[in-house]
Design a protein around this nucleic acid. Sequence first.
DNA 1: TGGACTAAATGACAATAATCAAGTTGCCTG
DNA 2: CAGGCAACTTGATTATTGTCATTTAGTCCA
Lengths: 210, 210
Amino acid sequence: MVLSMSSWREYDRGETLFLQGETAQAIHIVTEGWVKLYRIAPNGGEAVVNVFAKGESFGEAVAFRGHAYPVSAEAVTTCEVMRIPSVALLEAMRKDPEIAVSVLASTFAHLHSLVSQLEQLKAQTGPQRVAEFLLELCEHEEGSCVVTLPYDKFLIAGRLGMKPESLSRSFAKLKNAGVHIKRNHAAIDDIERLREFSETDPVEAWHKAQ
Amino acid sequence: MVLSMSSWREYDRGETLFLQGETAQAIHIVTEGWVKLYRIAPNGGEAVVNVFAKGESFGEAVAFRGHAYPVSAEAVTTCEVMRIPSVALLEAMRKDPEIAVSVLASTFAHLHSLVSQLEQLKAQTGPQRVAEFLLELCEHEEGSCVVTLPYDKFLIAGRLGMKPESLSRSFAKLKNAGVHIKRNHAAIDDIERLREFSETDPVEAWHKAQ
DNA sequence: TGGACTAAATGACAATAATCAAGTTGCCTG
DNA sequence: CAGGCAACTTGATTATTGTCATTTAGTCCA
């Protein structure tokens, strides 16, 4: 039932899914590619709020009330997105409250991710945020590994609240924590060591980075 | 029904309502005073995520899944808090899906507030964030007004992602935008002018602040 | 193979915010 | 009213980040 009312679309890189201020009438699920949520401040600055990958959904909380989107969405790669009209999901929710609970759970995940970002911005230095970003990409908890940077450095910088130049310098500092960047791959010598770097006091971290 | 299962408690200033990592079993509604939500980063830094006033609720999204709180909560003034066990609300939601929708709406409000904070941190300078904070306290859209700072400056600084000293200096810079601080009151000469300050380009704002 | 384009790194400098230290100010209490 | 405490302000210095300009490297395509 829900599926029957859903539509499905492809977007090219750079294409806009919706703009902040538009009235929300559907929730979106990324089925392929990457979508970024960003916000333009009145002074013109862009803040990347989140980047969603395959399987993730966004816009739940907004759509239900027909509020205006607080953010804009843009495809950062060619991608496929499923669109579920909010009326369809609302109806489903009325029939099965379990659905309501799982929508809430998903919304909570977003809330949690925003809280994490706030913590990082307020309490960590640039290189520490980069370290944490890399750690989240790792699949293991220890040892060494090589991760692929999921999108270009310009976007990563935005996501971490810094300029591309600063990201570049952060990568340079992380060499002392055993991280080597080559193209869009990052080789991490020792995951534990990198985690320690991201968790130590900023002033200590500074000495280590020298 | 829901109310019959709820409890009600007073907290002294500085008392902890819950700590991050604890399992959530209830949502909280502030009926008097102020409660801050904060998060301690692994490196020891504290990030104030939000400060809630009378009438506001928090913890909805977490409680439903019995997840661990991502943040800690502490009373910043003496306050009264209502506690609704999540089982009670879950049951109510099953009976009346409308409740689910309104819980989602409230969760969305939090989500929106977090997005705003991210935007401010990523795209605005310190003084601009302070200006915006003051504007949110104003009840009018234009003209002049006097607002009362809702909590002490140490906490305001934390909420805005800066050190108390920086807040102090920001206030000093805002004198040029027609803001005068006296004790815990801020007199704003011209709301429009202050808004313009918070919305102009950082580099322009700098010239104006000289 | 050789441009031409783009992404990224680097250097020099300005600007913003943190840190440390020293004053204020107001308030409470004996 | 003096003394002491706590919150806040101010000053001097350092560190981090942003900005602008330039260089390097990689990729595409004829």
